[in-house]
Design a protein around this nucleic acid. Structure first.
Lengths: 299, 299
DNA sequence: CTGAAAGCGCTAACAT
DNA sequence: ATGTTAGCGCTTTCAG
C-alpha cells in the first residue's frame, strides 16, 4: 500500500503544500532573518546554516536586507507569518525586549550577538578575544602605539562593536599601553575619512586595528593613495577575514570568525530547540588570527 | 464595523497566517531562487528585487546556495511548495526544459540569462555589448593583442559566458584583430593558474579581458606576486563591477551591469505577470564600462 | 451592511 | 491493515 502511494507520488510529481501542512503541523522550513546582501561574511554564515539544515531535512528561506531600510523587525515578523518552524537572527540590532518577544513566539537562535537567558540560544564569535589576538600580535611585533577604530556603540548590549572595543581596551591595559580609540562607522568610506584624519595627527600610531575588514579597506585605500606604505610606515589589521582580505596585493591581517561553522552550529541548536524547548545555550566561538602582509614590525 | 476590526487587529497584534491565505488566494510573497551568497553582484540584484517588491506590498523570501551543492531545481521547487505568488531566478543554469516547466507552474522572471518565448519574462545584461565595450576600450588605448579568458560554455543557451565570448570574438573581428581565447573557470584560483600559464608563453598579450571580476582578481594576484606590473606590462579588465573592483589599490577596469536596476525591473515585470499573464517580455540592459587604473596604453 | 458556511490540502485521531 | 473524518485560518460566495 505504502509502495503504491509512493509510486503515484513519483508518477504524478506530487509535492505537499507547505502552507497546508503548517495548519496541522510543521513546515520543515526555518527562516534566516535580515541577511545582509552587502556583506560576504553574512553569506558565509547563511551558507553554513543552509548546509546543516539541508542535511537535517529542513528547508531554509531568508529575508534580505541591503541598502533599503526594510526593518529587521518586519523581517522576523514575516518569518512568523509564514509559520516557519524556527528563526535564525544574524546580528540583530533590535532591543532586548523585541528579541525576547520573538524568541517566545518561535524557536530562535541568535548569531553574532552575545546572549544569555533561556528564551533563545546564541552563537557568537568571542569578539573580545579577537581584539586581544590583534593587540597581542601587534605588541609581539614590537608596536606600542596601537590605535583602534571603533564603531559607535549603540545602547543595545552584546553586539560585536561593544565587545571588540572592550577587548582592545583590556588587552592594551594588560600590556601596560595607552588605548587610543577613534570612533566612526564601519564602512569603507568612513574608514577612508578616519585614515585621513589620522595622517594629520602630529604623532601617528604605528599600527591601527580597524575593528572590521570593511573599515580596514578604507584605511588601506587612503594610505595607498597618500603614499603611506603599509606595513612599513603603519600596520593595519581588520576583523572578519573577508575573502577580499586574502587577496593579493591587499593581504590584510584579520581575525577569522569561522562564519561557516557558526552557521552550522546555530542550525544544530535550532533543530534541538525545535524538537524540544529547553534551557538557553550560549556559545562563544574562539576566533583565530590570520596574519598577512599588512602587519609587520615597526621601523 | 471595519474600524472596530482594525482596532482589534492593532490591539491584539493580529497578523494573518500566510499559509492559510495561500489556500484560498495569494501569499503576497515572491521567491528569489538560488541566491549565491558568495557573490556580491547577486546580492545587489536581490536587493533591487527586495526594494521594488517592498514598495508594491510584496514580501520576498530567498533560497540560498553557497559552497553546498543544493540544486537550483530543488530551490525553485521549494518556492512552489510554499505557493508563493511569483518566482525570480538568478542566472539559472538548468535546462531550457526545466525552466519552461517552472514558468508554466508559477509566474516567473529570469535575471541574467538571455531568454525568449512567452513562458516567462527576462532581464539580462547585454553581455555581448559588455565584452565589446572592453575590446573597444583596449583597442582605443592602442592594444592589438587582447586575450580573453572564457568560462567553459555549457550547452545551455543564453548564459552570460556564451554571449561574452561571442561578443569578444565579433568585436575583435570588427577591429581586424585575431581572437586569443583561453578557457577556464571563473574563479579566483583558476584565474591565478591561467595567469601563470599566460606568463610562460613566448609571446604574451598586452591586455587580458578576464570575463568576470572574480577571475580578474586571480590574474591580478599572480601578476602582482610575479612582479608583472599592471597596467605597464599588461592591462587587465573584468566584468561585473564588483565593489572590490573599485578598491584602491586594485582599481580594476570593469563592465558595470546595473545589478540593482536589473533587480528592480525584474520585480516590476513579475508584478505585472502576477496580476495578468501576458506575452513574454525580454529586456537587455545596456552595460557601461568603468575604466580604472588596471588598463592603460601598452608600453 | 453584517452573518454564516463551504472548502482550500493537509495531519492526527478515530473507526472499521 | 485500510478508510473516514474533523479541523487548522483564511477567502469567497451566498443568505439574511
Amino acid at each position: 500500500m505504502r509502495e503504491r502511494v509512493q509510486q503515484a507520488v513519483s508518477e504524478l510529481g506530487y509535492r505537499p503544500f507547505v502552507g497546508a501542512r503548517a495548519m496541522r503541523g510543521a513546515t520543515y522550513t526555518v527562516g534566516v532573518s535580515s541577511l545582509d546582501t552587502r556583506n560576504l561574511f553574512f553569506g558565509l554564515i547563511a551558507d553554513g546554516v543552509q548546509q546543516a539544515m539541508e542535511r537535517a531535512g529542513y528547508g531554509v528561506l531568508a529575508t534580505l536586507v541591503g541598502a533599503g531600510e526594510g526593518s529587521q523587525l518586519e523581517s522576523a515578523e514575516s518569518v512568523i507569518d509564514h509559520r516557519m518552524d524556527g528563526l535564525i537572527l544574524i546580528t540583530p540590532r533590535m532591543s532586548r525586549r523585541s528579541l525576547d518577544a520573538f524568541a517566545h513566539k518561535i524557536p530562535t537562535v541568535v548569531i553574532g550577538r552575545h546572549g544569555s537567558g533561556d528564551a533563545y540560544d546564541s552563537v557568537a564569535s568571542d569578539d573580545a578575544a579577537g581584539a586581544r589576538l590583534v593587540v597581542d600580535h601587534l605588541v609581539g611585533l614590537g608596536h606600542r602605539h596601537i590605535a583602534y577604530y571603533s564603531q559607535r556603540v549603540s545602547r543595545t548590549a552584546g553586539l560585536p562593536e561593544e565587545l571588540r572595543e572592550s577587548g582592545y581596551r583590556s588587552a592594551m591595559a594588560d600590556h601596560g599601553l595607552q588605548p587610543d580609540v577613534v570612533v566612526g562607522d564601519w564602512t569603507q568610506e568612513a574608514g577612508r575619512a578616519a585614515a585621513t584624519a589620522l595622517l594629520e595627527r602630529p604623532c601617528r600610531p604605528t599600527a591601527i586595528h580597524a575593528g572590521a575588514d570593511i573599515a580596514a579597506f578604507g584605511f588601506l585605500g587612503t594610505f595607498w593613495d597618500r603614499g603611506v606604505r603599509v606595513p612599513d610606515e603603519i600596520s593595519v589589521a581588520g576583523c572578519d577575514n573577508t575573502p577580499v582580505a586574502a587577496m593579493t596585493p591587499i593581504g590584510l591581517t584579520s581575525v577569522d570568525q569561522r562564519g561557516h561553522a557558526m552557521g552550522e552550529q546555530a542550525a544544530q541548536l535550532l533543530i534541538e530547540r525545535i524538537r524540544r524547548p529547553r534551557a538557553g545555550r550560549h556559545f562563544l566561538v574562539p576566533p583565530r588570527l590570520i596574519a598577512r602582509t599588512s602587519t609587520a614590525a615597526p621601523r
